[in-house]
Nucleic acid binder design. Sequence first.
DNA 1: AATGAATGAGTGTTCATTCAT
DNA 2: GATGAATGAACACTCATTCAT
Lengths: 207, 207, 207, 207
Amino acid sequence: MAKDEAPTRIQRDRRRRIREAGLEVFSAKGFRGATVDEIAQAAGLSKPNLLYYFATKEAIYTDLLARLLKAWLDPLRALDPEGEPMAELLAYVRRKLHLARDFPRESRLFAGEILRGAPLMGADLSGDLRRLVDARAGVIAGWMATGRLAPSDPHHLIFSIWALTQHYADFEVQVRAVLGDVRDPWAEAERHLVTHFTRLLTPLVAI
Amino acid sequence: MAKDEAPTRIQRDRRRRIREAGLEVFSAKGFRGATVDEIAQAAGLSKPNLLYYFATKEAIYTDLLARLLKAWLDPLRALDPEGEPMAELLAYVRRKLHLARDFPRESRLFAGEILRGAPLMGADLSGDLRRLVDARAGVIAGWMATGRLAPSDPHHLIFSIWALTQHYADFEVQVRAVLGDVRDPWAEAERHLVTHFTRLLTPLVAI
Amino acid sequence: MAKDEAPTRIQRDRRRRIREAGLEVFSAKGFRGATVDEIAQAAGLSKPNLLYYFATKEAIYTDLLARLLKAWLDPLRALDPEGEPMAELLAYVRRKLHLARDFPRESRLFAGEILRGAPLMGADLSGDLRRLVDARAGVIAGWMATGRLAPSDPHHLIFSIWALTQHYADFEVQVRAVLGDVRDPWAEAERHLVTHFTRLLTPLVAI
Amino acid sequence: MAKDEAPTRIQRDRRRRIREAGLEVFSAKGFRGATVDEIAQAAGLSKPNLLYYFATKEAIYTDLLARLLKAWLDPLRALDPEGEPMAELLAYVRRKLHLARDFPRESRLFAGEILRGAPLMGADLSGDLRRLVDARAGVIAGWMATGRLAPSDPHHLIFSIWALTQHYADFEVQVRAVLGDVRDPWAEAERHLVTHFTRLLTPLVAI
DNA sequence: AATGAATGAGTGTTCATTCAT
DNA sequence: GATGAATGAACACTCATTCAT
């Protein structure tokens, strides 16, 4: 496979299928629990053929993580400093929740990596991630300073949004076990979180 | 080891050491990523000797999980239906956060199991866990109904507490990567979460 | 296998058998051509059991090489600076030839490693080996300077002895192919080399 | 490639390039250590394209060996029965040494094959090779019988020339490790070997 | 109660060769 | 002629578990 050439249609297709299969298996079993054989089967390829497109098991995994981090941060990037603060933050909460709802495997893949101490993406966390969070935390701090949001620590506010939205994807079995089969966790979560953050961020009006 | 006899002091000691070693390794690497060899070494035992006390690798893991779940739910059990609602809930938040702070490995072990779909403790979730949560949710709902707490869905409120406290243990590397080396995540978290839940749960006073 | 403890009888036995099997296979097929399976079979062990005694294929190979180099240099070490020069050198030639005759697999193993550029024992060559050769070359140069041996370059004289003795082991198939089945290469070689070096080293007497 | 047709210029060129690449890789790593991929890359061809010109890896290897043997024996063929014995033999030594110096990869390729027991050229050794050596040995024996050379076994004399000249190519790393970086092994070897064989072959004059 | 020894079933990866275009 | 794609057969090494003492 000529590495420097433009990928052919087949290459793009196979790599996409391998990524999809890898996501399925890695998110369900973790890096160590996944086997190349299983991923290859899920991708409809023979094991050596899979390794023709991704040289190692780790290569599939890190490729997934790298793409994931980008998508994961997009909603935060979309936070508009010029927007109306409360609307911006609620929109962020919603976008993040929808991301977790629509891409739960990605969420779990990411959670698993962090849980193990981020052995393969540690650098990204203190690099891109940190820079972006710091920048947005500054914006939020500005909004709070001018009284348009109730004051709190912006970094921890962001952590809260992450924790509360991802919880529904990462701990899905627990949520379902507790709520039972009838209720709709995601719909309830959205209503609850919107109320939650509205109440949390609405500045108190002096009487 | 005569299974039906009372365990000797040595047996209790060995099993404790194996559990401690298993917790260390399983929480860091997951079930599949951990090797019996590594656990035996951490426990200061030979591999066959370890397997004399716990017949299989899985036995160590499930033993840890079973004990863990109990400890994990104790703070929720301690929620006093007769107590002052706001104080009770804030105390619960604090206890849960301290648990995560003081036993981060247990938190990660649990998170890993749930993340993978709880293959080995699925039953416990819809059993003991669900019953306890339902009971406490009922208590909280009562408090809200009488206007002593701002109204919201009690189940999701409990999820929020879980998500927000465990986040600091389970995603510790990410939290540290974002906050940098100088700040003290746990102290900040406590302050932030107390404010957070106070604001959230304080009923609006009609003017 | 406790690495720091004294080896048990079984360990010594198994390791000896593995070395013997490794020598047989590596000398015949080279490092890359040999398979762990084949060595294990030759040693009468299962593959994982072999790897219980030597962690990797390379470990067997380098263990063999290290022991080999020592044995290989012993005859040179035995060269006595106080002895009678001609007798000492002829004794060295004989000893080296007998070594090649009695341990042809060791000779081929060594030759194979050197032939490939000594990827795994390069350091030893410019270390121990070089020091010893330099020392002995000095002794021989002394003998030549006092007229007790015909003069020549001592380093190249040593190379000659190596080349001529090892040739009969390393190129054995060629020697046998040329000489046919009836002749006895080793006996002829000994006679020929003694004559050869006697003639070569006898100082010319001034008439 | 129509096998029965005369090869085109392109075909000749490609096969030459493959041979050159094969020589480079095979001589450095041996048959088993070499990969078709590496040879193809060295030849600037794709792997399937290389296999279009030589059907198998072995085909490249045996092609090289066959051509090599011919070239290897040319200096011996050039030994002129009508020439002056001492001059002829010294010329042979020189030619053989220059061959080793100028074509060390060929020498190592050959040495590797013999070392492994000549699995792919065993027949050639007891065929062409033996016939030629026997013939030349007869010539040398004649020279010795008439007193124009010091007597010795002609076959072993030929082995000596082979061993001493090829040693500098096949064991080059060892020679360089012992001599250090400053000395010029090939120049020294030539001087040494000429002296060596002159002394060896000069008949003793009865006084 | 303890451990050195042993192994069957994997597990990621390599590689010569073939297929299809 | 040329190459991207595919694969069967290996191959080195791992690991949970069992055996023997």
